[in-house]
């Protein structure tokens, strides 16, 4: 603990030293710069934006924006399944009982929103509104058997959704090298 305090003091000293030499490289980032680059969403819902969506709107958006590459529920185009199979939690690949679908694999619902907002639709990522992305998230969660058809998704409800595979993960991160481990 003593060492820990010492480190904090050392870091503070370093910080004040940095402030003393203001001729450093790089321009200060304004809040506007940061907001433009949007914050990534944490599993606890931190930085989820305003807006809300529902399953019905999500189905319509999905049909229009996503079916060039992804199968609708019940469709089985193998090329589309290879690109990204989104539905069908009972399917097995032989290798493991888990498909990499949202319902069988993904541990956090926030990741669904974060990923489709940043990367989808493939040809025009981030072209939809936050509410549209909430609707798409709601539709994908519903078709994966995770939420009910009437559930509304927004920044309060989405982080509370319990993913079926939430406890299926082994976190390899604790294998931090000895020299980086915090010491008392």
């Amino acid at each position: 603990m003593y060492l820990h305090k010492f480190l904090i003091i050392a870091v503070l000293m370093g910080a004040s030293l940095a402030n003393a030499q203001q001729s450093r490289f790089g321009a200060p980032a304004t809040q506007e710069d940061i907001d433009k680059s949007f914050w990534t969403v944490f599993p606890d819902g931190e930085f989820l934006p305003d807006g809300e969506g529902n399953v019905a709107a999500g189905r319509e958006l999905f049909e229009y924006n996503c079916t060039l590459c992804h199968n609708m529920p019940g469709e089985n185009d193998p090329v589309k399944d290879e690109i990204g199979k989104l539905f069908g939690v009972d399917d097995k690949r032989g290798r493991t009982n888990l498909q990499q679908t949202i319902g069988s694999y993904w541990p956090y619902p926030t990741t669904v929103f974060d990923y489709i907002r940043r990367a989808m639709p493939l040809i025009a990522p981030m072209s939809l509104t936050n509410s549209d992305y909430y609707s798409l998230t709601a539709y994908l969660l519903y078709e994966n058997g995770v939420i009910g058809e009437d559930e509304i998704m927004n920044k309060d409800t989405l982080p509370k959704v319990q993913m079926p595979n939430r406890d299926g993960f082994i976190n390899a991160y604790p294998e931090v090298p000895e020299k980086y481990k915090a010491k008392d």
Binding site: T40, F42, T111
Partner: peptide, 10 residues
């Protein structure tokens, strides 16, 4: 804390 992005959790 980690963000659990799509590429790290699937």
């Amino acid at each position: 804390k980690p963000w659990w992005t799509h590429h790290e959790d699937t």
